[in-house]
Design a protein around this nucleic acid. Sequence first.
DNA 1: ATTATCTATAGATCTATAGATAATGC
DNA 2: ATTATCTATAGATCTATAGATAATGC
Lengths: 200, 200
Amino acid sequence: MKVTKKQAQANRAHIVETASALFRERGYDGVGIADLMAAAGFTQGGFYKHFRSKADLMAESSACSIAQSAELTAGASIQEFVRAYLSREHRDNRATGCTFAALCADAARKEDEVRATFAAGIETQLGVLLGGGDLSPEAAEKARATHLAIMAQALGAIVMSRACPDDSSLADEILEACHVAIIKSLTSSEAVPDELQLNN
Amino acid sequence: MKVTKKQAQANRAHIVETASALFRERGYDGVGIADLMAAAGFTQGGFYKHFRSKADLMAESSACSIAQSAELTAGASIQEFVRAYLSREHRDNRATGCTFAALCADAARKEDEVRATFAAGIETQLGVLLGGGDLSPEAAEKARATHLAIMAQALGAIVMSRACPDDSSLADEILEACHVAIIKSLTSSEAVPDELQLNN
DNA sequence: ATTATCTATAGATCTATAGATAATGC
DNA sequence: ATTATCTATAGATCTATAGATAATGC
């Protein structure tokens, strides 16, 4: 019954991966320990040899899926990111999609441990979107604000779109409208002459 | 023990109001029937004389709070709406705040009955934001898309901000960045000359 | 000897129903 | 007689723990 230390570590990682998909799909409260362990191919009793509590796993599995998405995003232009993010494929596949869109509202009601993970994750994702550009301090601050606003808009679009019934045309309309708005904001902030820009 | 028909109707309405606050505060899965009925001043057994199921109440109480918010918004300019929506007060008071920000992600995992309520609610809120303006068909379509995008961005800002720990400066930064971005988008779509506007 | 996993279960939930109670409404 | 609310409970969850089992690791 016991397995090698290496295998135990692999089993633990597999439980974390399984959890990150199930939590995104059904929400934190929608996945029981027994459910999860069965989906990972184990029985429930073993869970607490790997994790101190369910909240611990919520934080760890979310950190894991946030890091995975960040890796996937790295190197892409903001335009590419937005196009993929605001796709119907992303909206319709919660289990492999953005952890923020799937779980921010859930996280807001959970332990500080979970929320600290989300705040750190937002910083990570923001860093990836900003890339390694060497901007002046003011330009960097402006870019940070712009990209936070884009993240919020993209996330909001997915969240609203998912709340609509499956066959809803409104769901697609939301994605489209936000895609257009984000592209427009990127174009205008680059191309509009300074004298036409609002300064706060 | 029995009460007048009028009183029974009032009790029912009170349960719906209590539910709309508790659901926004703790999520649909975070509120049990016993919890809710106790908060409303009753015992759990009476619930099913008023509602067929918990899902029924989720739909009805959410429709109720969405309609209330829409009423509150009616008459305000989009700038006033955005300022109030993106305030710390709104972020920190889920129970009385936007139903979409609090429950869209939850609703996405629930029965179609609940999601139909949300889609209808988005249309209602959108109608209020657009006001009774008499625009040309193209201008109306454009305004509809613009306002959907603003709703998504504002909602996304609140959702992201709430996922951060209580003392997080990032939480405030998100609200500020999105406020600036929305004001900017309103200004540019009004003030930027046509030849500088991107057309899709 | 240690320990990763298993079986079993405690104790606290949860939704929903059944039947009792006491007041309304005919 | 009807019915809004109450008490009580069935049956299915849920998180977490206790103790058994069987393999690793010293």
